[in-house]
C-alpha cells in the first residue's frame, strides 16, 4: 500500500513539436443514412458492455440488415469485438435470417472456436439439435462445450482452491522491458 503522503506531482509531459492537438477533418455523410446508421449500430454494440454499471443496448428487426453485415466481417482482428457483439445481438431477433447466420457460424469448422461458441450460446435451445454432432467436433473447445451442455450445464462448485501455474511453453515475442524480463527482481 502506497502512502498518499508520498504522492508524486503530475509528471512533466513534453509538448510535441507543433503542439498537442491537430484539427480533425470530416466528410459530410448526412446524405448516407445507412452509413450513419451503421456507425450508430457499432456504437450501440460496444456501449455499456462493462458489467460495472453496464446496460447493453437491445436490438430488434430494424437492426437486422446491419447486424448481418457486421457478423460477416470476419477478416480482421480490428473488427473482432464488433463481430462478437453482433452475434450476441442476433440472439435477440426472432427472424429466420438471424437464426441462419448463427447456425452457419456455429457449425462451420473453419470458424474461430470462440465465434462458434458465441453463436451456439446465442442460439440457446435452438442449438440442441446440433449437440450430438458437436460433441464429436474436431474443435476441442466446441466439443467440450457440447458435452457440457448435454450433461445439463453442470456447475461443479468446489472447495476454494489455488489456480495452477500455466505450463505452456512461452512462444512469446521478445518481452524486452516487461515484468517477465530477467533483469528485474
Amino acid at each position: 500500500m502506497a502512502d498518499l503522503a508520498l504522492l508524486p506531482p503530475e509528471h512533466f509531459i513534453p509538448e510535441p513539436v507543433g503542439g498537442r492537438t491537430r484539427p480533425s477533418r470530416y466528410v459530410d455523410i448526412d446524405g448516407f443514412t445507412t452509413i450513419v446508421a451503421r456507425r450508430k449500430l457499432d456504437e450501440r454494440l460496444l456501449d455499456a458492455t462493462c458489467a460495472v454499471d453496464g446496460r447493453p443496448s437491445r436490438f430488434d428487426r430494424d437492426d437486422l440488415d446491419l447486424l448481418l453485415l457486421a457478423t460477416a466481417q470476419r477478416f480482421r482482428g480490428e473488427t473482432a469485438l464488433v463481430r462478437v457483439q453482433a452475434l450476441h445481438a442476433l440472439a435477440q431477433i426472432d427472424d429466420d435470417r438471424a437464426v441462419r447466420r448463427l447456425f452457419d457460424v456455429a457449425t462451420a469448422v473453419v470458424e474461430h472456436d470462440s465465434a462458434r461458441i458465441t453463436a451456439l450460446e446465442a442460439l440457446g435451445e435452438r442449438a440442441n439439435e446440433l449437440l450430438d454432432t458437436l460433441a464429436a467436433d474436431p474443435s476441442e473447445a466446441v466439443a467440450a462445450w457440447a458435452r457440457w451442455v448435454l450433461a445439463g450445464r453442470p456447475v461443479d462448485r468446489r472447495e476454494p482452491g489455488q489456480v495452477p501455474k500455466d505450463p505452456t511453453r512461452g512462444t512469446d515475442r521478445d518481452h524486452d522491458g516487461c515484468c517477465c524480463d530477467d533483469e528485474r527482481g
Binding site: A51, G54, Q85, S114, R157, P160
Partner: peptide, 29 residues
C-alpha cells in the same frame, strides 16, 4: 462463484480470461 472457487495466493490482481461472456452483451467485469 468463480472468484470464490479459484484464486492465486499472492498480492497480485487475479485476471480471469474466459472464452466468452454470455451475459447480456457484457465483455468484462
Amino acid at each position: 462463484d468463480m472468484l470464490e472457487d479459484w484464486s492465486c495466493r499472492n498480492d497480485f490482481v487475479d485476471v480471469f480470461v474466459v472464452q466468452d461472456f454470455q451475459w447480456s452483451g457484457f465483455n468484462g467485469y
